[in-house]
Design a protein around this nucleic acid. Structure first.
Lengths: 229, 229
DNA sequence: TGTTGTGAACGCTTTCACAGCT
DNA sequence: AGCTGTGAAAGCGTTCACAACA
C-alpha cells in the first residue's frame, strides 16, 4: 500500500510513451521547463485528452492550472518503461545488418548496450566487428548467462531465424527484436517486436494506391458518387 | 457498379495483410495449393475468425467446406495492397543507413526499386553508392518528377529530417518511410511509417520489466496479493 | 461434413465534457 | 482563469457462434 500499486498500462498507451519521451527529451534540450497536455498533443500529433489519459497511467504528476514538469515527467516515463537501468542486447546473425547494429554506437547511450554477437558460420566466428568478436551461436546460452543478456536481436537469414529464436528462448531470453521477414513461433510469455521494411513499404503502397485511385476516379468518372470519407 | 465497389479496409486489417502475404508466399514456395483460415491463423499467430474477416474485406474468394487457393489469394492481396505495379523510392540522406538501403538489393524484386539517393553535403554529392550516384537534395523536385517517385525514405540526421520531409512533400511525395527518431509534422493527406529501433527497444524494456518485477515479487513478497492478470 | 462469411456481442481505445484543484 | 484527471459515451476491433453452402 505504500507503493502507488502498479497498474498494468494499456498496450496502446505503452506504445506511445516512447514517443512522448522522445519529444520531452527534445524539450529538455531546448531548456523548456513545463508543458501542457495541449502542447505535447500537438507535438506528438495526437489528441490532448489522449495525452492526459496516457500520462495519468503513470500517476497524477501534473499540476492543475499549470501543466507538467519536463524533467519530472521524463523521469516518470523512464521509470515506467524500465529505462532507469541497462538492458544488455545480443545480436544473432553477423551479416550486414547484424554487424551494423554491433558497430552502431546509438544504443548503448540509450541504455541498450550490444554486448555480444554470434553466428553459425565458422568463417565469421572469431572475426571482430566494432568492439566485439563474433561468437559461436552454440555458445549462446553461456553468453546470455555470463553477460546478463535480456534482449536478443535476430538478424539472420529467414531460413535460420526460427532456430535462432529457439536458441535464444532456450537461453532464457524473453524479449526479441526480429528483423527477419517471418512470423516467429514463440510462447506467449515472450515479447517480440518485428521490424520488417517490406511490410512497411507494402502498407504505404496501399494508402498510396487509395490516393491514386481517388484522383484517377475524380478525373475519369462521370459521377464520382459519394466516396465515403 | 460493375466494379465490386472498393470498400475501405480497416487500418488494423491492412496492417496484417502483408503478414498473410508473406506466409502465403512461403506456402506457395512449398507447393501448397490450398489453405483454411485455421491453418493461416496458426501460422500468423492470430485468431481464425480474424483471418476470415480480414480476407473477407478482399471479397468472397474462399470456398465453403474447402478453403482458399494460395495463388489466387496471393493475387488478391497484392491487388488490394497495390503491389501489382512498382513504386519508386528515393532515399534522402546518404549516411550509413541511406547507402545501405541504396545498395540493398532486396527492395526492387519486391516492387520498390530505389531509383535515387540525395544528400545536402557537397562532399557526398557526386559520389556513387551501389548503382546510384548521390544527388543534390535541392534537385529533389526534379528527381521525383523525372523518375516518377512515390515513396521517400528519410535517413538523415534528426536535425535535418523535418526539412527533408518538407522538401519531399513539396516535390509531391505523399508516402514517407521515416528512420529519424522524431515525430514529423505532415499534412494528414501524407502517409508516414516510422521505423525507430529506440522505440522498439523501449517497448520491449517495459514488458521485460513487468516480467522481472513479477518474478522478483513472487520471490520477495510475503503475500504476492492478486497481481491482477 | 467441413469451412466460409458475417451478424451480434464483447472488450478495448479514443474522445468528450466537466468536476476538481491550483 | 486555466489545466489536469477522469467518469461516461462513442467508436473500433476482435471474437463468438452459426447460417449458408460446396
Amino acid at each position: 500500500m505504500t507503493q502507488p500499486q502498479r497498474r498494468r498500462i494499456p498496450e496502446a498507451a505503452v506504445n506511445r510513451l516512447p514517443v512522448y519521451l522522445q519529444i520531452l527529451n527534445n524539450l529538455h534540450a531546448t531548456s523548456v521547463l513545463r508543458f501542457s497536455s495541449d502542447e505535447l498533443a500537438v507535438l506528438a500529433g495526437v489528441n490532448a485528452a489522449k495525452v492526459r489519459k496516457d500520462l495519468s497511467y503513470l500517476g497524477s504528476y501534473g499540476t492543475r492550472g499549470v501543466g507538467y514538469e519536463v524533467t519530472y515527467l521524463i523521469h516518470q516515463i523512464k521509470r515506467e518503461l524500465g529505462l532507469l537501468r541497462e538492458w544488455n542486447v545480443v545480436v544473432v546473425g553477423a551479416g550486414n545488418l547484424g554487424c551494423a547494429l554491433a558497430k552502431f554506437g546509438g544504443f548503448a547511450p540509450r541504455g541498450f548496450p550490444v554486448v555480444g554477437i554470434v553466428d553459425n558460420d565458422p568463417k565469421k566466428i572469431g572475426q571482430s566487428t566494432g568492439w566485439l568478436t563474433i561468437g559461436d551461436v552454440r555458445n549462446l546460452g553461456k553468453i546470455v548467462r555470463d553477460l546478463n543478456v535480456t534482449i536478443g536481436a535476430i538478424t539472420t537469414s529467414t531460413a535460420t531465424a526460427q532456430s535462432a529464436v529457439d536458441a535464444l528462448i532456450d537461453a532464457g531470453v524473453a524479449s526479441i527484436l526480429n528483423f527477419a521477414p517471418i512470423v516467429l513461433a514463440t510462447p506467449s510469455s515472450v515479447s517480440v517486436r518485428n521490424v520488417d521494411l517490406g511490410v512497411e513499404l507494402q502498407i504505404l503502397s496501399y494508402y498510396e494506391q487509395m490516393r491514386t485511385e481517388k484522383i484517377e476516379g475524380a478525373k475519369t468518372a462521370k459521377a464520382p458518387s459519394s466516396v465515403s470519407v
